[in-house]
């Protein structure tokens, strides 16, 4: 802010940068060690593996049935994203446009599944799903994953919808637009960036959502992150490099979508969006 800072302030800011850089270096080193290991032939007691190979990827692909796991993952994610849009966007529209008694209760109801950690409500939810026959099925996994994501979409979409001037809709009505054409030709194009951003965030969250899938998935419908957990938990049975290869497949799947998402949203939105609706 000022040109001549006192020495103590300069020292302080150096300390802070050292901390940040230390954190980031460790983070990248951790990720790099997984990637290096997945391409290494033999890695014992040295800085780098003895040689490079890609055979762990083909062996991981066969050992962990990654093809099927990826198909299940995309089915789950696709269904979650679709139903989030169908349930979440209209609800957000209602909450953005109307003020009614009890609105605070509805907001609280939507905030709770987002804030409560999945483990806490995951066990009762899994119990109910198993009792109703959904446990261990693909639809059970999808239903469980929708619990935190539908409220997430609603809370992200509310400010987007509030930005759109209500008079635009009124004008369309005056020119004779019905509800469907109002939605199709006015709201959808104007909301598209917001919907895209919200659904991309849901997509990224669902790929990485471990607990709820873990509790509700049967052996035939594990997603990538759950399969990775089982592989790491049973380490010793499989080669470490094979597990690392699977971890790299998981990282690539997640990070590609994150990169796409970051073109449309500000990174702080991924964590900080809830708080704004919480504030009032």
């Amino acid at each position: 802010m000022t040109q001549h800072q006192p020495a103590s302030e300069k020292l302080w800011s150096t300390v802070i940068w050292v901390l940040v850089i230390f954190f980031v270096i460790n983070l990248f080193a951790m990720i790099a060690s997984v990637v290096v290991s997945s391409f290494g032939t033999r890695w014992l007691g040295t800085w780098l593996p003895a040689g490079l190979t890609t055979r762990w990827y083909s062996s991981a692909w066969d050992e962990f049935q990654l093809g099927e796991v990826l198909i299940v993952t995309f089915q789950v994610v696709g269904a979650v994203v679709f139903f989030c849009g169908v349930l979440g966007v209209p609800a957000a529209y209602a909450l953005a446009r109307r003020d009614f008694p009890g609105k605070n209760i509805v907001m609280l109801l939507l905030l709770l599944p987002m804030m409560a950690p999945p483990i806490t409500f995951g066990i009762p939810l899994a119990t109910v799903l198993y009792q109703t026959g959904f446990g261990g099925t693909l639809s059970g996994v999808i239903l469980a994953n929708l619990v935190p994501t539908v409220p997430f979409v609603v809370l992200i979409m509310i400010p987007f919808i509030e930005q759109i001037d209500e008079r635009v809709e009124a004008a369309a009505r005056v020119f004779g637009a019905g509800t469907w054409s109002l939605f199709r030709y006015i709201l959808l194009p104007m909301l598209a960036p917001g919907i895209l951003a919200a659904l991309l965030l849901v997509l990224v969250r669902t790929i990485a959502m471990f607990e709820l899938t873990f509790f509700t998935a049967g052996p035939a419908n594990q997603t990538l992150v759950v399969a990775l957990y089982y592989a790491v938990n049973a380490a010793g049975v499989r080669a470490v490099q094979s597990i690392d290869a699977m971890a790299v497949v998981y990282m690539v799947t997640t990070l590609v979508w994150l990169l796409i998402a970051l073109r449309f949203v500000n990174p702080t939105q991924i964590v900080a969006r809830a708080k704004r609706s919480d504030a009032h």
């Binding site: 951790m30 990720i31 997984v34 990224v204 990485a208 959502m209 471990f210 992150v225 990775l228 957990y229 790491v232 597990i243 690392d244 971890a247 998981y250 990282m251 997640t254 990070l255 994150l258 991924i270």
Partner: peptide, 9 residues
Amino acid sequence: TLGTVLIAE
């Protein structure tokens, strides 16, 4: 984004 499972691994 990567989640706790990958960080643990």
